[in-house]
Design a protein around this nucleic acid. Structure first.
Lengths: 283, 283
DNA sequence: ATGCCTTTGTGAACGCGTGCACAAAGATAC
DNA sequence: GTATCTTTGTGCACGCGTTCACAAAGGCAT
């Protein structure tokens, strides 16, 4: 689920499960907060609550890092902060480049969460020549022609892609060719990368769609008692339904003669509109 | 992994596994692209490649929705687009509110991917009175005092939180109290919500930290042959290491002897700075 | 019709992640 | 030193998700 790359046995990371790695930043954040309040130690129970996870899970996660706790007492906050930081590689400096300085790219450049954890924005890169030189978040935007030299000069190994979907794959390839081996992709596209390159994807639209699914289910459950199992339609949500798409039904997937599972509702409408739905790419 | 909520048997969704739901938007996107190119049918193999997944997984995913394919032929593109859209609840209109119109909030408001899939930005809300009335992405920002009435008037059930971490929980509670039952959280905090409310979290900082972990591991493997297993330190990455934090070692977590961790952090590494490490919240 | 060829749909095996429950370890009190 | 109490670390079992591999289904040619 992590990387967008197809093939790969996943984990393997010196024994630390991927799921655990994904939670370490969470623990680290909670621990940092405790550290600031000068709390010396925490129990797994307290910390788990703060991080929003199960205490058994937390203990098991920590057990992969080593035995850093003290039975009968708990974990030393400062010590754990250090250990987790080290494990995550946050004790060193990670220069990153952001490619695509649109609304999202600019927001990322201004994002305080980066700098606070060892990530340094080494450069902002955009394909628009008009952007070049313009300062964003105190950093002058550079033209994409300089991409290769920027990466080489700064020893950048992590790249952030915030371009439109259409440009993402191309930018990705240039980043990889220039030496980047980790990519955080905000463009709504599946990136194809060679083995050895990690890709993580953040897709705002997908997150909303997943929420919509659950929302629909909730509405459907609460509203009416469904008759047929096939009748998945949520029975009109409680909210004002405005834009309802081409109301009609599923076209017939049948290749042959008879129209089979037209099941849905009316007989297919010519939803010519559907084809016009823009793939509308982001920022 | 999905919701931020602790307790819950997960799935249950009328048989459709959570993991499958999370992939449906991916399939939908690939299908939409095909639809625009007027491709009539696709095989599971082709579609899987386009979506970046395994074909067997894709077929199993679709099998949860029903038998929408034709053996020997493949899947009817238009029909599948409709079915998945319906399953995800995208055939209806979902008004959303975005709370916190900073850099990120503004970027989200401008994000094209929302409108293209049935999501309509019903309102932009900010706590800063100076923002009120100012247009962002063509929509006038409204003050947070209006939050409850906005949600009620527009029948909003999905809220997006893009506030600083400190305000997130409070905003969350107001949203939920006002009737919102699905939340997309961009603030780096663990949100606590009552049962029945879904939360999805997007944390930019965490994604980067996960990448850093893998990056470090790659560097460590490639660079030197580690002596002791304890020696996890990646042996200086190929990049210019600048900021290396307190180079020294882990404090000792021992509870006994020394009156240790009163530790503003005097004892430990010299990094008095560490304590000052801002929890630095984002946009 | 009959047979061949393609692709779906799914039964079954496997592996990872989660959570329970408890023994081991250490601190603390006496 | 001994007993008690707290909290960690983990063995174990369970369930979800992934993948393989194949039989069933349908199109298409003859």
């Amino acid at each position: 689920m992590a990387t967008g790359r197809p093939h790969r046995p996943t984990t393997r990371a010196r024994g630390i499960p991927e799921a655990t790695v994904a939670r370490l930043p969470l623990y680290l954040r909670a621990l940092t907060a405790l550290s600031e309040r000068s709390v010396p130690t925490v129990s797994s129970e307290e910390l788990a609550t703060a991080a929003g996870v199960n205490s058994a899970k937390l203990r098991k996660d920590f057990s992969y890092l080593g035995s850093y706790g003290t039975r009968g007492v708990g974990y030393d906050v400062e010590y754990l902060v250090y250990q987790i930081s080290r494990e995550l590689g946050l004790t060193q400096d990670w220069p990153v480049v952001i490619v695509g300085i649109g609304n999202l790219g600019a927001a990322l450049a201004n994002y305080g969460g980066f700098a606070s954890r060892g990530f340094r924005v080494a450069a902002l890169i955009d394909a628009d020549a008009a952007m070049a030189g313009r300062p964003v978040a105190g950093i002058a935007v550079q033209h994409i022609d300089e991409l290769e030299s920027i990466i080489a000069d700064n020893g950048v190994s992590i790249g952030v892609i915030a371009t439109p979907a259409g440009a993402a794959q191309q930018v990705c390839e240039r980043l990889v060719a220039a030496g980047v081996t980790s990519i955080l992709n905000f463009a709504p596209t599946v990136l194809t990368v060679p083995d050895g390159v990690d890709v993580r994807k953040v897709d705002l639209s997908i997150e909303l769609q997943i929420l919509a699914f659950h929302e629909q289910r909730k509405a459907g459950e609460a509203a009416a008692a469904p008759d047929i199992t096939d009748m998945v339609t949520p029975v009109a949500p409680p909210v004002a339904a405005t834009r309802r798409r081409a109301d009609d039904a599923p076209v017939r997937p049948v290749v042959d003669g008879a129209a089979r599972h037209g099941a849905g509702d009316a007989g297919s409408g010519p939803d010519g509109s559907d084809g016009g739905r823009s793939a509308a790419m982001p920022a």
